[in-house]
Write a protein that binds this DNA or RNA. Structure first.
Length: 576
RNA sequence: CGGAGCGUGGCGCAGCCUGGUAGCGCACCUGCUUUGGGAGCAGGAAGUCGAAGGUUCGAAUCCUUUCGCUCCGACCA
């Protein structure tokens, strides 16, 4: 492509409403433009990036024996009522009616549609498994769209689905897809990790998220230094193998703690460590109040609570509820004498002589033994993992890091196929329900995540496989015939070699071209100018390392190939 | 949905408190000069100040309503 024929509106300044680096750079590089909250137009260069990502996705899905199809974006409400999600999905599902007052929604995902398709066609175990996927625009009416392409309302997703006759078959497809995802993100040049995950509202019993490692990620993941255990902190197990404490302590005693609402304030006032204080948090679980106890220096993981109680909805209790149940303002709740269910983090069994809230204003109890003084409904793993915890698999060191979720694979089991009666006859002529899996990759989010992970002060540094072009060829002096001839010659040569090249033939000063080339993040830069040609050389620059070199102008083909191999090698090493 | 903030040429902003002819930088157009890291000079085009209503002799500025957007929180593949 010739730059002069391209629509690449680059900006010197970034618009004020762009917060994260990927959003700023996508706007500045002329790749996307915002239409309205959470919705973006992909300009030609941005579309190229999406297509490069999609190509890798398609190739690897094919290896996993998935076939591509395309389903409608608008879906009838009836299907969602059948699966039960019309009630459960909430406001993120954008609903509307047609002229005949029939109800529809915009597809945020396609379990219902694909299940409807397959149940209508597949009758026999001989027709299974079925593995299908699509790459399509999704719509989720996010409560708060933000971070540009990272969390839009409209976004591009690859969603795949498998239908199996047997548990083993379903697992095989799950792991085949898991492997395909590893290859996809590997090929795309990203630093990433598959992590064990909570399956959330999609449902199902087992799932992995694929996280691109970046400090700006919205998720926190925990991983082990010694083995390959890695999990989203939402899920990361905390194992407590200790012996319950057998020591006794003095009788509980009420002490005044005026205005000490937080663990820190209480600990400071009473001169004890935060770990000697028990934090009592009240939650509403499907509308019912429960108390959760964790050590004062720990955090409650409400997803573990939700899973423990097999609940739909967990929220922190509001101040009025706290007042009603504890007869005290927020900050003085404690387990002693509480009449609701009390769930305690297992780790608390290790100690005694705790400080707890007294369920009375400005007062706490000291010398509390939870088994002696309180009624604990159940002990369980209810807190968030910390770097001091041991790996639940091998006991190794745990580290926390930030990540961006770009892919998610779920074993759905029979959740949808049961609700929508997707059945087949097995070899005994007996009706069975199909076993499903679903597999998503946020294609547009991958682009944003890649930029979060790969950028510098000059702009984007695209991993070569997803860069809009492989190489940018700068003509520094378009008025010089000799330079022009050389540039055209190199341009034709690169195209013949199969290199995706953008030739900057604009009537601009050299500085403008250098700045734009860096901003766009194209991995390889070739610079042709009068100065270099006089010496018989063409300059080259590796966008990632910034390393510059010189290639002989009269033997470009071999020299370029050798240099390109070096650039790719640099990327491979960086990825590790 | 709760809290905070912002809407002024394409982009980034000032002006608003204290009402009185709408400004700056970048980008854009023309000309000349310049040409290896976002050029210089000169000239030019472009804004019913988000919208509606009100107060006033007079509103970008004060008041009310409304729409849009952003940030924090709750929520979420």
């Amino acid at each position: 492509m010739r730059f002069s024929n391209c629509y690449i509106p680059t900006l010197k300044e970034s618009p004020a409403d762009a917060e994260v680096i990927s959003h700023k750079l996508l706007l500045r590089a002329g790749m996307v433009r915002r239409l309205t909250s959470g919705m973006y137009t992909y300009l030609p260069l941005g579309l190229r990036v999406l297509e490069k990502i999609s190509r890798v996705v398609r190739e690897e899905m094919a290896v996993a024996n998935f076939e591509e199809l395309l389903m409608p974006m608008v879906q009838p409400a009836d299907l969602w009522k059948e699966s039960g999600r019309w009630e459960h999905y909430g406001k993120e599902l954008l609903r509307f009616k047609d002229r005949n007052e029939r109800e529809y929604c915009l597809g945020p995902t396609h379990e219902e549609v694909i299940t409807d398709l397959v149940r209508g066609e597949v009758r026999s175990y001989r027709q299974l498994p079925v593995r299908l996927y699509q790459i399509q625009t999704k719509f989720r009416d996010e409560i708060r769209p933000r971070f540009g392409l990272m969390r839009g309302r409209e976004f591009i997703m690859k969603d795949g689905y498998s239908f199996d006759a047997t548990e083993e078959g379903s697992q095989q497809n799950y792991w085949a897809c898991h492997a395909a995802y590893k290859r996809i993100f590997q090929r795309l040049g990203l630093k990433f990790r598959p992590v064990e995950a909570d399956s959330g509202s999609i449902g199902g019993n087992f799932s992995h998220e694929f996280m691109v490692l970046a400090d700006t990620g919205e998720d926190t993941i925990a991983f082990c230094h010694s083995c390959d255990y890695a999990a989203n902190v939402e899920r990361a197990e905390v194992t407590w193998n200790g012996q319950p404490c057998t020591q006794t302590c003095a009788p509980a005693e009420k002490v005044a703690t005026p205005n000490a609402h937080t663990v820190e304030e209480v600990a400071a006032l009473l001169g004890v460590a935060a770990s000697s204080v028990v934090k009592t948090m009240l939650f509403k679980v499907d509308g019912k109040a429960v108390a959760v106890l964790v050590r004062g220096d720990r955090e409650v993981n409400d997803i573990k609570l939700k899973n423990l109680l097999n609940a739909q909805d967990v929220v922190m209790a509001d101040a009025a509820t706290v007042q009603e149940i504890t007869k005290a303002p927020v900050g003085f709740a404690g387990p002693v004498g509480l009449e609701i269910a009390v769930y305690a983090d297992a780790e608390l069994q290790a100690g005694t002589d705790y400080v707890v809230g007294a369920n009375a204003g400005d007062a706490h109890l000291v010398h509390v033994d939870l088994t002696r003084d309180a009624t604990v409904t159940a002990w369980a793993d209810l807190r968030a993992i910390t770097p001091e915890d041991k790996c639940p698999r091998c006991g190794g060191h745990i580290e926390l890091t930030r990540g961006i979720e770009v892919g998610h694979v779920f074993m759905l089991g029979r959740k949808y196929s049961d609700a929508m009666h997707a059945a087949f006859l097995d070899e005994n002529g007996k009706e069975q329900i199909m076993i499903m899996g679903c597999y998503g990759i946020g294609v547009s989010r991958v682009a944003a995540a890649a930029i979060e992970q790969n950028n510098d002060e000059h702009g984007i540094v695209f991993p070569p496989p997803m860069a809009p072009f492989d190489c940018i060829l700068l003509n520094l002096d378009p008025r010089n015939d000799e330079v022009n001839a050389k540039v055209e010659q190199i341009y034709a040569m690169l195209k013949d070699m199969g290199v995706d090249v953008l030739m900057d033939d604009r009537e601009e000063r050299p500085g403008v071209k250098f700045k734009d080339a860096d901003l766009l993040g194209i991995p390889m830069q070739l610079v042709v100018g009068g100065k270099g040609l006089a010496k018989g050389i063409v300059e080259c620059k590796d966008r990632r390392s910034g390393e510059k070199g010189e290639l002989p102008a009269d033997a470009m083909a071999e020299a370029f190939s050798a240099w390109a191999a070096k650039v790719r090698e640099g990327w491979a090493q960086q990825q590790g």
